[in-house]
């Protein structure tokens, strides 16, 4: 488990720099050096006055599966929201007020669709359901323009 920094909350009080036993909090890009961070140490998390630091698992434990009926009902909603997003996108081509409203509706439906996807089964990138989907997407290798390399890298990086 390593610390991560939300740079939007960081107020540069720099307490993390002075409590960190390994120097992992002091980097040129503002993010913690995960490879040097001590597993579960949390000294910086507790010291930060701005709550800009939190802990993330390196490897996630297996999460219980969602109920199949809830998941499939959410899949139906997901498809409905996506259809509304696509209708909105198709209507958003012009410059008039209606086009702007259609764009807002498309955007809102994408947010709703993402929420359905999250609650159906794809909340954690490291989860078994995400892995299953990625593995199945390898079957699209050879489809014109399909970025199969991205799928392969994700399967490698997300354990």
């Amino acid at each position: 488990m390593h610390a991560a920094r939300n740079i939007a909350l960081c107020t540069k009080d720099c307490l993390c720099l002075f409590v960190c036993p390994t120097g992992a909090t002091d980097t040129e890009n503002g993010q913690i050096d995960f490879s040097r961070c001590l597993d579960g140490c949390r000294l910086c998390v507790d010291a930060c006055p701005s709550h800009a630091l939190y802990l993330v698992f390196d490897r996630y434990p297996v999460k219980p599966q969602k109920d199949a009926v809830v998941a499939s009902a959410l899949d139906n909603l997901l498809e409905s929201k996506v259809k509304q997003e696509l209708i909105g996108t198709a209507l958003a081509q012009g410059e008039n007020g209606g086009a702007k409203l259609a764009k807002a509706i498309a955007h809102s439906n994408r947010v709703l669709a993402e929420d359905c996807a999250r609650e159906a089964r794809y909340i954690l990138p490291q989860g078994s359901e995400t892995r299953k989907l990625l593995t199945e997407l390898l079957g699209r290798r050879g489809d014109p323009g399909f970025p199969v390399d991205a799928v392969e890298q994700l399967l490698e990086l997300l354990q």
Partner: peptide, 22 residues
């Protein structure tokens, strides 16, 4: 392996932007 997931391409786009945010 055959692609068997029931999601449309539009849904897969939303699933992927959700996972990107995660």
């Amino acid at each position: 392996m055959e692609y068997k997931e029931p999601h449309t391409n539009g849904a897969l786009a939303a699933i992927c932007t959700n996972l990107s945010k995660a």
